[in-house]
Amino acid sequence: MLRENALDMPKAGFTVQDMTRMAICLAFCCATAFISFPLPFTPGLVTALTIGIGLTALVLPPKLAFITLASYVFLGAIGLPIFPGGVGGMGRLLGPTAGFYFGWPLVCFLQSYFKGQAVSFRRYALVTVLIGVPFTYVGGLISMVTVLQVGWYEGFMMAVAPFVFGDVLKALLAAFLGVRINKMLQR
């Protein structure tokens, strides 16, 4: 049963259904992070985690989506090898791709907040492509420029340009899956 207002939370805490959905989304994010490969000219990885983040945002209310992605980042930070490339630890959170990791919970919250109440591929696609993709790049670009001490253009060429086409396709796939899953959950 979906709540009428996506921001409503039970007063006593999470329901079993909420925790189950969060755990499934967290596991899906961990699994999709393993589908990744490096590019020779950037420290960033091409990863299927983009699908996991978008799907989490589309099937969970905003607060639960934020908590799920914050938990993912926390678990990776304490050493579980769940980050893209099968690594974990603080090194990823202090390196040139740190901005992506810190941005994901906020991006997930924003996508979930703006997805609306109606289950619509068009709306989901717009939210994942116009909010998810560019807002993810903001953090990644800032950390790339700061940590590697390069200019904005060079940072853009390492943190954004090689990934745009693939990330738009992955965002559209997340929107497609989000519609299917939410229709299933409404039954």
Rank of each mutant, 00 (worst) to 15 (best):
I181A: 03
F83D: 12
A118G: 07
L80I: 07
G155L: 04
L169R: 10
L94W: 07
G151R: 14
Q149W: 09
V129S: 03
Y153H: 13
F163H: 12
V179M: 03
T136E: 01
R3K: 06
V133R: 10
M158C: 07
V16W: 02
A171E: 06
L58F: 01
I82S: 14
E154A: 09
Y137V: 04
P61G: 04
R187P: 02
V107G: 01
L7D: 04
A171P: 02
A159K: 12
L110I: 06
P81D: 03
P38W: 00
A98D: 11
D18L: 03
V138W: 07
M157N: 09
T136F: 11
A159S: 15
L55N: 08
S120F: 04
V179G: 00
F156E: 10
M90A: 10
K63D: 00
V147K: 13
V127H: 11
I142P: 01
G155P: 09
A118L: 13
P105G: 03
C30R: 07
N182R: 15
G76F: 00
F165C: 12
I181M: 10
Y124V: 12
I78R: 12
E4A: 11
W152P: 02
A161G: 00
G140T: 10
R21K: 08
N5H: 11
F102D: 04
V119E: 04
L177K: 13
V150E: 10
L80K: 14
P43W: 01
I78H: 12
M22L: 13
Q117S: 15
D18C: 00
K63N: 01
D8T: 02
